[in-house]
Design a protein around this nucleic acid. Structure first.
Lengths: 186, 186
DNA sequence: GGACCCGGTCAACGTCCGTAGAATGAGCCA
DNA sequence: TGGCTCATTCTACGGACGTTGACCGGGTCC
């Protein structure tokens, strides 16, 4: 048993708290997740969470930081493929971080605002890659579909989407995305 | 000023409470909506809400009863049109009831269960109308898209979807829905 | 080795919640 | 009119929450 240095110990505690927070925020959403529950799950005292993160809001902010996936800005076809690949990844890859934000933003205005900031950027990338004057609206629809699929699969769990393979879903969505990425006829 | 009969007064109070509850549940979700706030919005005492509805859960159940939209079971094309019409209606028609459920079901397990019960029925209608062996999965995707669009428009409010006309959205989604309602090639 | 720093705990606060139950007072029926 | 019913209010309880500040004890540095 080597004893960890103090700084190391602190890092471990912070990490543990963040991991517990992510899990709970994803499972319960912002409101139902309590600092006390996070602390218990991380095996520390609730006061420590406050000590490190200052407030519940701050903790949520830190726990739900997610890297903005960079979509290669290219032509419509490549963008569709990139979007499908990104969706497939999010569908089987550990979706905890996405879920924490998605679930919370629907009831917490701060979460919504933070997500919106990241979302508009990605939306701009998408709409830049597709032609047509209503490109922005069609990009929004693409985003809405991605969100809808994730929400349906993990949060609502209504139909077969919950146990379909990501590849199968991507396969079915390819013509859909292509239809939206193509300019309107006429 | 004629004075209302006692039964009439009661009916008005219940109605007012339910209306206030619907509005607040839609705006805030289940957790952030308090019985006290509902009572204040309805201009009555919190105790009265309990007296009439028994519990917050019961109140939510009553406030979020929504009629199951009957989709005419027909061929794929008609189903697509019915789905588009239903979506357009939900997009500009008062979306309060839908939002109360959608927003709450993501954090409240009871709401989720109740919605699921209604949802599987509708999903079955959809998948019955479209051919192919993966009809159920494609029906799920159709449902996911509908939810995604509503959530994006009213809850996330990310992109252009918030101010697009329901007709325009329906127009853009028609080829999408058709692509999903058609059987997979091969 | 002694002073300091800091990770961590503990107990407490003020608030707000869902809920219960007693009290009030006006409408209804004999 | 008198008694009953019932819509409505008031007050209070117990619990959970976010947050605070005092406190403890072992690393860390001179």
């Amino acid at each position: 048993m080597e004893k960890p240095t103090r700084a190391e110990q602190r890092r471990r505690s912070e990490e543990g708290i963040l991991a517990a927070a992510r899990t709970l925020f994803a499972a319960l959403g912002y409101d139902r997740t309590t600092i006390r529950a996070v602390a218990k799950a991380a095996g520390v005292d609730a006061g420590l969470v406050m000590h490190y993160f200052g407030s519940k809001d701050e903790l949520f902010a830190r726990a739900s930081e997610l890297p903005v996936a960079e979509l290669p800005v290219a032509d419509a076809d490549e963008m569709v493929e990139a979007l499908l690949a990104s969706l497939a990844t999010r569908l089987d890859d550990e979706p905890v971080a996405s879920l924490a934000v998605l679930r919370s933003m629907l009831t917490n205005e701060d979460a919504a605002a933070r997500y919106r900031a990241a979302g508009v950027e990605q939306l701009a990338q998408i709409s830049a890659a597709i032609p047509g004057e209503d490109a922005e609206l069609r990009a929004s629809l693409l985003g809405a579909i991605v969100h809808g699929v994730i929400i349906e699969r993990y949060l609502l769990r209504l139909g077969r989407l919950s146990d379909a393979s990501p590849e199968q879903v991507a396969e079915l969505l390819r013509p859909v995305f292509r239809a939206l990425a193509a300019p309107a006829e006429g």
